[in-house]
Design a protein around this nucleic acid. Structure first.
Length: 306
DNA sequence: CTCCAGGTATTTT
DNA sequence: AAAATACATGGA
């Protein structure tokens, strides 16, 4: 049993809820307060069971060899995935200062920004999700991962690993189209997989760039990566707080719900809001998204339900 | 049938 | 430079 001790407490219920919030992400499964996920590291596959608590996250090895290297990799991956090291106290101070958002500091207390440490997965996911509803997007992601992803079978369940850029670069265009990826998205995916293979994009390169703007420019140089996708990926995979997917349909709807903007085109008030949340922009987006898919007891929807 | 969905590229003003 | 449009396809 491995364990990550937390300096800053988290809310395990919120985390587990978010991970299983009515969508079907094929990259992990959530059962009985634990998260199951398969990993590939140094050509070895393994499966772990992750059980988050308030002050620690427990990691149990279910399949594959537990070496010190593997354990270190998984711990670091999980820490990044769930943003375990960030102290979000000052974000809560900002929330509390806003009458329309202050409830979030209690309602979602201890919710950390769930990221996507695998940059290729984040890019592929962002492209799949462009301009289609999330339910459909997750279906496509599942088809993609079930056809091209490696996996581990364990206890009559299959745990998938997201396909590598090499696999997608070699994938047949017709097969991708059959998954109901549009023609242009198919081309985008292949193109981006190629960019990874050619070493044009990776996390090290992105991190070596001096600012958000140059990171965004590196990404948007690829066809299929527009401003929204670049910011989404920088937010989810590099935890760039200043990368806000402005124009995002969900973000706009959340702002409308909270009465922060009055319509979808006049976004001055949105920019003012983000100005006040400097340094915590990505967290603000994440919490606003969180507000869109509330728990049954969330006041925001109990009003309209029936 | 309509409108929309965690947009992007291209073409037209 | 800004605005309109084509694209693509399921979900509600």
């Amino acid at each position: 049993m491995d364990e990550i001790l937390l300096t800053h407490p988290i809310n395990p219920e919120e985390l587990l809820w978010f991970l299983s919030r009515g969508f079907d992400d094929p990259i992990y499964s959530v059962r009985e307060n634990s998260i199951f996920r398969a990993f590939l590291f140094a050509d070895k596959k393994f499966l772990v069971k992750i059980t988050p608590g308030t002050r620690s996250v427990k990691i149990e090895w279910l399949c594959g060899e537990r070496t010190e290297e593997n354990a270190a990799f998984v711990k670091s991956f999980i820490s990044e995935w769930f943003d375990l090291e960030e102290d979000i106290t000052s974000f809560y101070e900002l929330l509390k200062a806003d009458d329309r958002l202050s409830y979030m500091a209690e309602e979602f207390y201890g919710l950390k920004l769930v990221g996507m440490p695998d940059l290729f997965e984040a890019l592929a996911w962002a492209i799949i999700g462009q301009q289609i509803n999330l339910t459909f997007a997750y279906k496509i992601k599942r088809r993609l991962i079930e056809k091209y992803g490696d996996y581990i079978n364990h206890d009559s369940s299959r745990y998938y690993i997201f396909p590598s850029p090499g696999t997608i670069a070699a994938a047949d265009i017709e097969d991708l189209r059959k998954m109901q990826l549009s023609g242009s998205k198919t081309a985008y995916l292949k193109n981006i997989a190629l960019a990874f293979i050619e070493g044009k994009i990776d996390k090290t390169i992105l991190r070596s760039l001096p600012d958000s703007v140059s990171r965004r420019n590196l990404l948007t140089a690829q066809k299929g990566i527009g401003v929204w996708t670049a910011n989404y990926v920088l937010m989810k995979s590099l935890r760039d707080q200043t990368a806000v997917p402005f124009g995002d349909a969900g973000l706009i709807n959340a702002l409308l719900n909270h009465g922060i903007i009055a319509n979808k085109t006049e976004l001055q008030d949105m920019h003012q809001l983000f100005e006040r949340f400097k340094g915590w922009e990505a967290y603000l987006v994440f919490y606003l998204w969180r507000s869109l898919a509330p728990k049954p007891d969330n006041p925001l929807i109990s009003i309209e339900s029936n």
